[in-house]
């Protein structure tokens, strides 16, 4: 099986709809099949990565800790769109710090999140084989 470049585009906020959690599950499944997986967070999708989520008051599963597992699944390219953050009054500091561990460099921690402009992200999209939109 040849490896394909899969891009999962997240444009929805978590909890209000099921899209965010569904996307995360599909990404984890896709990664288990050893594809070259990237994720992008644009529009309300950037809200998925906000720190400090606590769902105890709304009786729903808090899946924000699961994003930290993406590194274990070798999902190491997580693009966050700058314009979407700015429009919402957010900076990277408001988001979880996601890392992956490089086995070849004695498990050195490396940043997974890449802050990109809309134009830069469009270039990244152009280089993908398959796009999944949530």
């Amino acid at each position: 099986m040849t490896t394909k470049k899969f891009m999962y585009v997240n444009r929805r906020a978590p909890y209000g709809t099921i899209y965010a959690w569904e996307a995360l599950e599909v990404v984890l499944i896709g990664a288990a099949f050893e594809q070259d997986v990237s994720m992008a967070f644009v529009d309300d999708g950037v809200f998925q990565l906000l720190k400090g989520q606590d769902t105890s008051g709304i009786d729903m599963k808090n899946f924000s800790p699961t994003y930290s597992a993406l590194g274990d699944y070798e999902v190491t390219k997580i693009y966050v769109e700058k314009e979407s953050l700015e429009e919402r009054g957010l900076t990277l500091d408001d988001l979880q710090h996601l890392v992956w561990e490089d086995e070849d460099e004695d498990w050195a921690e490396k940043d997974s999140i890449r802050l990109v402009s809309r134009a830069e992200l469009a270039e990244v999209f152009a280089g993908q084989d398959v796009m999944f939109n949530f």
Partner: peptide, 8 residues
């Protein structure tokens, strides 16, 4: 409030 907390 609970919806604010859930979303961080």
């Amino acid at each position: 409030g609970p919806d604010l907390a859930a979303r961080g």
